[in-house]
Structures are given as structure tokens and as C-alpha cells.
Design a binder for these strands. Structure first.
Lengths: 194, 194
DNA sequence: CAACAAAATAAACATATTGTTGAATTTTGA
DNA sequence: TCAAAATTCAACAATATGTTTATTTTGTTG
């Protein structure tokens, strides 16, 4: 019984790999179920034994990604102290984000490109935003000083992070996570006029 | 002759309006040329007299948007002095961006949502990034002090802007452009610890 | 008004993709 | 070797695509 599940997973994995490989060279919208089956060397009917349609396939891949990202971020973040300054919290979060993103950068590069699916950027942002929010709440001070609506402040910080991540992924990780963290801090310092 | 062009434009306008109306309730990928024709009360064949396919239609809409945005931004920006501090330059650009975005917010809201098309966010970011770049170059000082690769710095600043814009548009313009500009400045000040 | 040309319509077309079915076949592991 | 599970195969109706041809509507112009 357990081996049948294993077999199941192997075909699923084959489908996903073939699909993601195609996604590098052609946009999601132009990939047909027939294409996927052909590339994976399976019968088209077999695809439908595993997924409802190609949207379902991409849904599953996205969900798995967000789950992995979330778990890994939480893991790293929990190793930090709860009380810290805004700057220190940002540095810790940056270190966590960049080292987590690194593991998933090939997939992220595809999903964030125009070969992916409309709205992925929003879903990704939402996932990161939640982590930023939690991190900010660790710092008691910021609440009192912040004169700006929280949704806008979160949108600002999260999108700034996202901008660096997108550039980094598009540059095929031309820097280490540590260099990216330093880069983030340097930008904050520059804006602060230091 | 001129009236035929006028007639032509009226049908094109009708197609675009019907299309954008549908786009508010269903995603681009699920809208068929037949749907568009039905909503616009035209023959399906007529659609093909004006556009190659539905992608071409969306291409034209996006292009028109970027052209309008670019023109309006350039217009407003040219009214400012060329030499200014980083903060002053950012404030001027923010004021320009928010007032320009306001005019196109209904369309932007759709195109940035998951009803739009993969990659729109990237194309929009690129359009804004170019304006940010030009604005930064007006300030001689920043070049000397900046210790960070330009592509990353631009990605950071532009995405931060974009984050505010997206939140604003999603909130159905719950603030005036002036309030958004002040909000942007307040966030910068907060990060600077002032 | 009559003639003309552009634009839109209507119907038909081959083609491609979809998602489903049922039966046959192969693979798997116990 | 056996039975269950997984995959294959062929066929199916349904839908959307993009093109074509003939016909009608529309607006302009002499």
C-alpha cells in the first residue's frame, strides 16, 4: 500500500518536473495538458488521474512552495530573540528571508516571470507580508512611534523586500544571502543619511 | 473617410469597454473572444477585424496605459527643479506618481489583480523604475554616497513605491494623492528614526 | 436620391484542446 | 504467481479558435 503511494508520488513528481521544465521556455497560458503529457512521456489520461487540470497542477506547486517557505522562515525566525530595535529586527528578518529564498530561487524565478500566472506576485507578497507583520510586532516601540496606517507601512516594507528578492532572483543569485542582508542594511543606512 | 475611422474607433472603444467590464468579474484566461463579442453586441468576426486575438487586445490596452502614464509623469516632473536633495527628489516624484496613478486607478486595479495577465507587475515596475532612475540622476550627491549596486537600489525604491500604489489602488483610493505623498514621507522619516 | 465603399454580419469550415469514459494492458509488490 | 493499482489506448462530445465567403448595413459623396 505504502509503495503504491510512492509510485503515485513518482508520477506526480515526473509531471511536475516536466511541467516546470516547459515553463522555462514557454508561458503557462500556452502550455497544454497534451504538451505536459508528451514531455513527461505519459498518457494524457494519466495526467487527469493526478490533477483536475493544469491550473490545479500549478495550484499544488504554489501551495507546496508557500508551505516550505513559511516553515523555513518560522524555523529561522524562532531562533532570534523576541525583543529588538526596528533596525535589528529588519536585519534578522532579511537574513532569514534571503537564506530561505535561496533554496527556492529557480521556482520563484519562473513563477514571478511572465511565464507564470496572474496574481502570483500578490500571493507571494501576502505570504511575506505576514512574516514581516509578525516580526514587527515583536518590537514594542514601533507601535507607539508609527504615525502611519499599518497596512500602508507593511505594504512599503514588504514590497521593498520583494523588490530586492526579485532583482536577486532575476540576477540568478549573483550574491550570497549574507551579502544581500548587508545590502539591505546599507540601503536603510543610506536612506537614513548615514 | 475620416468618419469611417471614427466609426472604427467607436467599435474598438466598445470592444475595449466591454472587455474591461468583463475583466472585473472574471479572469483574463477564462474570457473568450465569443464572450467579448456577446457583451459588446457585435459579431465575433468583427472582433478579428480589429484585433489579432484577445492577447493583442490586452497588449494594446497596456501599451496605451503606459504611454499615458509616461507622458503625464514626464509632464509633471519637468515642472520641478533639476537639483535637489534625495528627500526632496523623492517627495516630488511621489507627488507626481500618486497624482498620475489616480487617473488610471480603475484600470490598474484590474491589471494588477489576478484577473490580469502574468508579468503585468513586472512591466509596470519597469515603467516606474525608469522614472525613478531619471529622478535620482538629477541629484548629483547620491552617486558619490551610494555604496550599493544601482540595480538593487532602484529595485528597492521602485518596489517600495509600487507597494504603496498597489495598496492604495486596492483600497479604492481611500486617500488623496497629497495624503499619499505625506504618508510616503512619513514612512521615510520613521525609518530614519526621526 | 443614387451610387459607392467601408464596416459589420452571418454561416460555415477545419483545427485544436478539453475533460470524460470504458476496456484493455502493464506494473507493482505481497 | 496473483490481485490490486496504475497506466494506456481509443473514442467521444463539447467548446474555442481563426479564417473564409457571401450578404447586409452604414455613412459618405457626387
Amino acid at each position: 500500500m505504502s509503495v503504491y503511494i510512492e509510485k503515485n508520488r513518482k508520477t506526480k513528481k515526473l509531471i511536475q518536473e516536466s511541467f516546470l521544465e516547459m515553463l522555462q521556455s514557454k508561458p503557462f497560458e500556452s502550455i497544454t495538458v497534451g504538451d505536459i503529457a508528451k514531455t513527461a512521456n505519459i498518457n494524457r489520461g494519466t495526467f487527469y488521474l493526478h490533477y483536475v487540470d493544469k491550473f490545479d497542477l500549478l495550484d499544488k506547486i504554489e501551495l507546496q512552495l508557500f508551505e516550505d517557505l513559511g516553515n523555513h522562515i518560522d524555523e529561522l525566525q524562532s531562533s532570534y530573540s523576541s525583543i529588538h530595535s526596528f533596525e535589528k529586527g529588519q536585519e534578522q528578518l532579511a537574513a532569514t528571508l534571503f537564506s530561505t529564498i535561496k533554496m527556492h530561487s529557480p521556482l520563484l524565478k519562473i513563477l514571478l516571470s511572465d511565464h507564470g500566472r496572474a496574481g502570483f506576485h500578490l500571493r507571494f507578497k501576502l505570504a511575506i507580508l505576514e512574516k514581516v507583520r509578525i516580526n514587527l510586532e515583536k518590537n514594542k516601540n514601533y507601535n507607539e512611534n508609527l504615525q502611519v496606517p499599518m497596512d500602508y507601512f507593511l505594504a512599503f516594507i514588504t514590497s521593498a523586500f520583494l523588490g530586492l528578492i526579485e532583482q536577486w532572483v532575476q540576477n540568478d543569485l549573483d550574491k550570497t544571502p549574507e551579502e544581500m542582508t548587508k545590502l539591505y542594511i546599507d540601503i536603510i543606512f543610506f536612506i537614513q543619511g548615514k
